[in-house]
Design a protein around this nucleic acid. Structure first.
Length: 652
DNA sequence: CGAAAGGCTCTTTTT
DNA sequence: GAGCCTTTCG
């Protein structure tokens, strides 16, 4: 995939010479708001990177004065890498990262203005759910009748729109909304007591900080002469407001995205942001990147054929100078197991034809679909790498150790302390923990503080045996916390594992070895944290762990088939792409069937999948699925034969 | 009151 | 199959 210079004049500007006229325009327009609508494979990442390089090299703008927001940490890393190449040295001072990472940094630095402890910990979805559950219990709201997940969603939605608990009921008198508002309010109190923020808080509180402290806002506004936002179609209202505020002074905001690839509405991303952009910045320059350097003509045409069926969209022309390429194939198999077997067998054939496994991917709608494919690949000894599923940092044993580390970092993190209190099992059960929570609440102190006051002759509400267990645990935590300031991160992990007997605990259970190996992997990850400031090390280790995404783990060079969800595949490309489960009920997903808007999003998701491919796509449709039979997806109903062949696959 | 074992339900996508 | 809950035993 090499891109030729189209100017015909051999320049000496490595930042501009490799670009086509549209890309070049997008890179060079360095004054005022700019909206780049970038079709799949149109060199979007290159444009953003070169734009930054151009600002630094040709416009003499200090990297310190540029902010670039990416969708994943991996994208940020890659961008850093390419900038290093273009500039010939490391970029110093550039603000580059995801919304969450950038906001976390701002809040650690200036959050104290609105009462945020700079040592805050970040709660992920699971932590969030447990805390909401606790909030419900405190309020006496039955968690069975009112599932915590529903409140979690409601709260996340509110936060993404910058609504506080009281805003929730303002527009509604419904019983359930009132209840949600109460849960939200108490959940906030619990977060505050633990010096914790959830994902949505990172964005929301940053906006609130800017509102409460104009001087802080003005500092950042003056600093950031240029702001770039990638994947703009997937920003939430709070994220959009954030960049809008930040760019108010210079109005040099560059938004890059593709409405046809908007697939995160469930995370409250709002496609309207990209429309609002033109309204909010009427003077905005708009550049459309329509030339694809990725896909063959056949694939691009097929993709257009699919996406053009969406009603809610603006037509945009895509073209390519790539060759026509082979038609794609719709493969009908019997069941999901055979889907896997087909992939395994075809991957074998493809490698014989000179394809590399690293250039093959299997895309699917739901994580659960990966299993039969994995099994077939294992059986046929085809190496693969699975992205996502049960994420590394989400595994129980990893979260256990991380919880200990969090307690060391911030002993007031009640949730983590509560988690760790009986892991490994040390006789402090559910009932005792609840009693301790209630007691701490009465005394108006943190769990940690209450734990420390328990001695033989101090007043406490526990029977002697239980009190002994609690004070023993308290001493154990002291033994970890006290030396922690003098220990390397790895030594700290070792100390935790050793003092708690965590290894034996793990090995007692089934698959213990496997779990223990994960701990060892965590340990080797900790080795790379070599900041002489040990607190800083711990802080960034914890933060990176919670903000890490699955795609960050992807290794493009690895000689293995990549297994990945359609959502996570956004932004990636592969020579050969298999899309599994191209069936009604899976793609489009069952849960989207009754809302045309959701169907359109599913179609965009399918479009994202299709446009990952450079040379060939296999659509897999298994006729039998779980309990019943499935029709093939409506998304492939009207694709002409010259673009897509049909094939029945029968296992030999 | 805690731990272990067995039965139950539910399962979209994720920073 | 994983997490959640109930049951039963210590």
């Amino acid at each position: 995939m090499s891109q030729e210079t189209e100017t015909g004049i051999e320049g000496n500007n490595p930042v501009l010479d490799s670009l086509n006229p549209d890309q070049r325009e997008a890179v060079e327009a360095s004054q005022g708001p700019l909206l780049i609508i970038a079709g799949p494979g149109s060199g979007k990442t290159m444009v953003i990177t070169h734009r930054v390089a151009h600002l630094v090299l040709s416009r003499n703008i200090s990297p310190r004065r540029i902010m670039a927001v990416t969708f994943t940490n991996k994208a940020a890393e890659e961008m850093k890498e390419r900038l290093r190449y273009l500039l010939g040295h490391d970029v110093q001072g550039l603000t580059l990262g995801t919304f969450h990472a950038i906001c976390a940094r701002i809040l650690r630095q200036h959050g104290d203005v609105i009462g945020i402890n700079p040592q805050f910990v970040i709660y992920d979805g699971e932590d969030q759910l447990r805390l909401i559950k606790q909030a419900q219990e405190d309020l006496g709201i039955d968690t069975k009748h009112y599932p915590p997940g529903a409140f979690q969603r409601a709260i996340s939605k509110a936060k993404s729109h910058l609504y506080g608990p009281s805003d929730m009921v303002q527009h509604s008198e419904r019983h359930i909304d009132k209840m949600a508002s109460r849960v939200y309010k108490h959940y906030e109190e619990l977060l505050g007591e633990s010096y914790a923020l959830d994902f949505d808080d990172l964005i929301m509180k940053t906006v609130l900080l800017f509102q409460a402290a104009p001087s802080v806002l003005s500092y950042y506004q003056s600093r950031y002469l240029h702001i770039l936002v990638d994947e703009f179609q997937d920003t939430s209202p709070s994220q959009y407001l954030l960049v809008k505020r930040l760019s108010e002074k210079y109005r040099n905001i560059c938004a890059v995205g593709d409405p046809d690839q908007s697939i995160y509405s469930f995370r409250f991303a709002d496609i309207r942001n990209i429309m609002d952009f033109e309204r909010d910045y009427p003077e905005a320059k708009i550049v459309i990147l329509g030339q694809s350097y990725r896909s063959s003509k056949t694939i691009l045409e097929l993709a257009q054929n699919i996406i053009s069926q969406n009603k809610e969209r603006k037509e945009k022309k895509l073209w390519t100078q790539n060759e026509s390429g082979a038609p794609s194939t719709l493969v009908e198999v019997l069941n999901p197991e055979e889907e896997g077997e087909f992939v395994a067998s075809e991957a074998g054939k493809l490698t014989h034809q000179g394809e590399r496994l690293s250039d093959i991917a299997v895309l699917y709608r739901t994580n659960a679909q990966s299993r039969p494919i994995e099994e077939a690949l294992i059986h046929s000894q085809v190496p693969y790498q699975l992205i996502g599923g049960i994420r590394f940092y989400q595994r129980r044993e990893i979260k256990d150790v991380m919880a200990y580390l969090r307690v060391v970092y911030n002993p007031h993190d009640n949730l983590s302390l509560d988690r760790v209190m009986n892991i490994p099992k040390r006789g402090i059960g559910e009932e005792t923990r609840r009693k301790l929570r209630d007691w701490a609440k009465e005394e108006n102190i943190s769990l940690y503080s209450s734990l420390k006051t328990i001695t033989e002759d101090s007043p406490h509400p526990f029977p002697p045996r239980t009190a002994k267990m609690l004070s023993d645990f308290s001493l154990l935590i002291q033994k970890i916390i006290l030396p922690s300031y003098d220990l390397e991160l790895v030594e700290l992990i070792d100390l935790i594992v050793q003092l708690t007997g965590y290894k034996d605990y793990l090995l007692m259970e089934k698959d213990g070895e496997e779990h223990w190996e994960n701990i060892m992997e965590l340990r080797s990850g900790a080795l790379s944290y070599t900041n002489p400031n040990r607190r800083e090390n711990l802080a960034s280790f914890l933060q990176n762990a919670t903000l890490a995404s699955d795609v960050d783990e992807l290794d493009e060079k690895k000689e293995a088939v990549t297994l990945i969800t359609l959502h996570q595949a956004k932004g990636l490309e592969f020579g050969i792409v298999f899309i599994a489960g191209v069936e009604e009920g899976i793609l489009p997903h069952l849960r989207s069937l009754d809302d045309p808007k959701d169907i359109e999003e599913e179609r965009r998701l399918f479009y994202v999948g299709v446009t990952r491919a450079k040379r060939k796509i296999y659509f897999l449709h298994s006729i039998l699925h779980g309990r019943g039979s499935n029709r093939s997806s409506r998304f492939i109903q009207h694709i002409p034969l010259r673009l897509m062949l049909k094939q029945f696959w029968v296992k030999l």
